[in-house]
Computed example of a mutant assay.
Amino acid sequence: MLQFSVFRAHLTHSRARLLSPQANPVNFDEYCQQKAAPPGSSTYYALRQAPVARQPLLTALFALRREFEETVKETTDPTIGRTKLAWWQKEAAALAAGEPTHPVSQALAAHLPDVQAEYPALQGIIAGFEMDLDQARYLDYPNLRRYMAGVGGTFASVVARATAHEPSQAASWAAPLGEALMLAQIVVELGNDARHGRIYIPIDEMQRFNVTAADLINRKYTDAFTEMMRFQTARARDAIRKALDALPVGERHSQSTLRALAALALALLDEIERDGYHVLHQRIALTPIRKLWVAWRAARKH
């Protein structure tokens, strides 16, 4: 009963935040909040589980990732995408040199204790997203993992180091979780990605299940598609659970945001499975109240 009362109080507070007007002009923290975690999003509730003092830094990191993602996935001309990513490479260097110009970079300069130490990781994340401009398909799982390592694993490592008790060890257990979260995202975004010409399910796996790219683009649901999605969902779920089990006991509390994201991904995979994997014509999502409950409960689970 006490636990539910605390949760209800947390819900009331969240509703107040959702309804409160922005009284001040937009600054870099507000920009990052709007970019990375709009109210009602999974990231919004996951970030609320982090220590208050660390939320601005984590929000800025997720905002940076969102900037990279928009650059490659919402740009139809690869040449323009490369130009924008090249600009971000220069901006990352400017950030490391203490001369940021973009609101997200300015937020990181204000909140990231050692910007220069994370500079190589930021370059690695950009390189990961650059792969989206070079290829829209992956031959097999090892090739896909190269992409997931940069976009998911390296990013999760940076996020983990922001709150870890032993940051130097974070990559060993955070990177697998970041890659696992990417596997879940591939399942969730399959239809939308296919409509934009990107298919992240490896070619050899699609051939194994006798599913074609045209099937995905044309939103064709078949028994073969269901079997393929059952495999993809099971792999993502198993990878997330394995990565969570590998989290050091001493770091579980410090990683409340990543654990909340993992719990939200697992809940969404369950929802997609219950819906029969109908992800080609719609984006299945959890309700905001369920997101809040799942994230809140996951952050307090030991």
Rank of each mutant, 00 (worst) to 15 (best):
Q3H: 15
G150L: 00
W296I: 00
E118K: 02
R161V: 03
G191H: 12
W87T: 14
K73R: 10
A180L: 04
E130A: 10
L64W: 02
G152V: 08
A224C: 12
N218V: 06
V188P: 08
Q116R: 12
L18C: 14
F28C: 05
I284T: 02
A170M: 15
E271K: 06
T71A: 08
D132R: 00
M182H: 10
H102Q: 09
R195S: 08
A16E: 09
L18R: 06
D29Q: 09
A96R: 10
L269G: 05
G191C: 10
E205L: 14
A162W: 13
A194W: 09
L95Y: 01
D270V: 14
I203Q: 03
R300Q: 04
A36D: 05
T79L: 13
R195N: 13
I284M: 07
E91L: 02
G250A: 15
T226E: 02
G124A: 04
A180E: 08
I272N: 00
T287H: 03
N210V: 11
I201E: 09
V72Y: 02
A194G: 09
D29I: 09
V115M: 00
A299H: 01
E179N: 14
K73Y: 05
F62K: 01
F225S: 03
R17F: 00
R252A: 06
R145G: 03
R15I: 07
L269P: 05
I199L: 00
Q232P: 12
D134Y: 15
P78G: 10
G98W: 08
C32K: 03
A184L: 08
D223C: 14
F68S: 02
A53K: 12
Q207R: 10
A162V: 08
V188E: 15
G153V: 08
H13C: 11
Y221T: 09
L264D: 02
P113Q: 09
D223T: 14
Q207Y: 12
P21E: 08
F28Y: 12
V188F: 15
L292I: 00
R48F: 02
L258Q: 00
A174C: 07
Q22Y: 13
G81M: 06
S5D: 08
V151D: 01
A117F: 04
G150A: 01
P38M: 14
D204V: 06
T79C: 05
A243E: 07
I272T: 06
Y200L: 10
L286E: 06
A107R: 01
H13S: 10
M131P: 00
E227D: 13
V52R: 08
L258D: 01
A298L: 09
D238I: 09
S105Y: 01
A53H: 11
Y147D: 00
V72N: 03
E273W: 04
Y119V: 15
P21T: 12
R208V: 15
E179R: 09
T71K: 05
T79M: 11
L108K: 01
P100R: 05
F129W: 00
H165K: 15
L286F: 06
V159F: 04
R48L: 05
S256F: 10
I203D: 00
F155D: 01
Q255N: 10
S42K: 02
I203C: 15
F62S: 05
A107Y: 04
